[in-house]
């Protein structure tokens, strides 16, 4: 009896929290399909008064650009996350090994980048001019490949794997690559998944790299493109007046904003549940070893 009571309490509390989290998402979706005039007349509503697809129509007006931006974002996210994970975990693995000769200077080198960054202009000069990556996929991937912070996180996790395990492997004749790929990585799935998820979000949500290094619309990532559309909508009325041009098109500005949020968040929302089981474990990564 008592137990059942506690259970109901838990269910009620969790339901309230679930509702709190789901409400904004539902609101965003329903605003995105609301009629703009309704929004101005009645304000935001959770159940649209009348449904209109104007916002999506406006965004889908140039589907080529939408698809090419999706393609760019997906390529960058997948490649960037995989490559980044590989490089960072290899680096972290080296740092975690007690018998690695340059452990201290290399750790210092990684740690240094967490605390200091070179500033925007040298960074830009380096990527755009020295490395000549402007208007290539590389410019969207390379700058975010290695994060000092994630590397440290992985290193701590790797270091928590008992040293004896490595020793016994080496005794059986495994070289460092075998130890890394066959032993360390499979044991570190939670850490890799959480770092991978964060990397993925970082790549997916990034528009800044595109803004800095991409002039070519074919290489424009999704977030940058959506950001540009939004700025355009906001400005439409201002520019129209100044250019002496009549913009008779009714821009669904409020609902378009939400439609963009839906489009931008959609794929990542779908990916998230698959990471969940690792992610919960991953949250405590790094805190285990004091």
């Amino acid at each position: 009896m008592k137990l059942a009571g506690r259970k109901t309490n838990t269910i009620i509390i969790l339901s309230i929290f679930t509702a709190l989290f789901i409400y904004p998402i539902v609101a965003v979706v329903s605003i995105s399909i609301s009629h703009v005039e309704d929004i101005y007349t009645f304000g935001y509503r959770i159940i649209p008064k009348s449904i209109s697809w104007d916002a999506y129509k406006y965004i889908f007006a140039s589907p080529q650009q939408l698809f090419s931006s999706y393609r760019v974002s997906i390529i960058v996210t997948v490649l960037g996350t995989l490559l980044g994970l590989l490089i960072m975990s290899m680096l972290a693995f080296s740092l975690s090994r007690k018998n690695f000769k340059f452990k201290r200077p290399l750790t210092y080198f990684v740690f240094f980048t967490i605390i200091f960054n070179p500033g925007l202009v040298p960074w830009y000069i380096n990527i755009a001019q020295t490395l000549g990556m402007k208007n290539t996929y590389l410019a969207l991937i390379v700058p975010y490949l290695v994060w000092g912070w994630f590397t440290m996180l992985l290193r701590t996790f790797f270091a928590s794997i008992p040293e004896e395990l490595f020793e016994s492997c080496e005794m059986d004749g495994a070289n460092q690559f075998t130890v890394f790929f066959r032993i360390t990585l499979p044991l570190s799935k939670p850490a890799l998944a959480s770092v991978g998820l964060l990397m993925m979000l970082r790549y997916w949500n990034d528009w800044f790299l595109g803004l800095l290094y991409i002039n070519n619309t074919e290489l424009m990532p999704l977030q940058l493109w959506l950001y540009n559309i939004m700025v355009n909508i906001e400005e439409m009325s201002r520019v129209a007046a100044d250019a002496g041009v009549i913009e008779t098109i009714n821009f669904p500005s409020e609902s378009a904003r939400m439609a963009m949020a839906v489009l931008a968040a959609g794929p990542i929302l779908l990916v998230l549940p698959f990471f969940q089981k690792y992610f919960v474990k991953g949250i405590t990564v790094g805190s285990i070893k004091g």
Binding site: I125, A128, L211, L212, N228
Partner: peptide
């Protein structure tokens, strides 16, 4: 012509000037 869209104009221009592009 170097078209810089509205959202990125200021940042990109200032950066290009600073970097000597």
């Amino acid at each position: 012509i170097l078209p810089l869209s509205k959202g990125e104009f200021t940042q990109k221009l200032n950066l290009m000037m600073a970097a000597g592009d």
